[in-house]
């Protein structure tokens, strides 16, 4: 636990480039922590992606992401540095997404579900971003919430299993177990997709 996480698009050092100006601290003193604008600049992309992937309804995504940043900002004093700042933000994002999911159990990414993946060009270079995103979102909609959470954090965000366990508040073996199951599900979905497109 506690290894610095490097989410996609985020600086490797937890506070690299994020300490607010002006810095009036003496050596050895951490005088300031990131302000909201700085946090937003450094973490918006992955907070958005994770919240969306974890099933926050599209209509509530803006609110959810804003909630994450306001929560992070409000609780910065509580951040003890036991994990990386990014892991801590992941955890807040996860809990926020969970709340939004509960608020709207009928959640669906309508615009994604309405368009069948099988339509359009086949795999390879023609399988563009949009279709890839649609495929993954459809897959995530079809698995249990537990599996979905592990898939998003482990597979999409490429966090380590201990980090995922920390964020989800579950045992490490639970993460491994869910990961194995959801990876198997994902492979079946991929094989189905490949077979369907091979016929076309």
């Amino acid at each position: 636990m506690g290894r610095a996480v490097t989410p996609r698009g985020v600086a490797s050092s937890p506070l690299a480039g994020l300490v607010s100006e002006p810095s009036a601290s003496q050596p050895g003193e951490l005088s300031a922590v990131p302000d909201l604008a700085t946090l937003f600049r450094g973490h918006f992309d992955f907070v958005w992606r994770v919240a969306r992937s974890l099933g926050v309804p599209s209509g509530a995504l803006d609110d959810a992401v804003q909630d994450v940043f306001l929560t992070v900002h409000r609780r910065l004093r509580e951040f003890e540095g036991r994990s990386s700042l990014q892991t801590w933000i992941y955890a807040i994002t996860y809990r926020t997404a969970l709340n939004y999911r509960r608020r709207d159990q009928r959640r669906r990414c309508e615009e994604l579900v309405e368009e069948p993946v099988a339509e359009g060009p086949g795999p390879g270079e023609r399988l563009d971003r949009e279709r890839a995103g649609r495929f993954v979102m459809q897959f995530l909609e079809g698995v249990s919430a537990d599996k979905r959470d592990v898939f998003v954090l482990s597979v999409l965000e490429e966090l380590t299993a201990p980090e995922v366990a920390e964020i989800l508040g579950v045992k490490l073996n639970t993460v491994y177990s869910r990961l194995r199951l959801v990876r198997a599900d994902f492979r079946v979905a991929l094989e189905t997709l490949a077979a369907r497109e091979a016929r076309e």
Partner: peptide, 18 residues
Amino acid sequence: IEELERSILAGARQELGP
């Protein structure tokens, strides 16, 4: 399948971003 998985995951990471 492995290549397809990599391709889809890479595309999805971009697509699901803001």
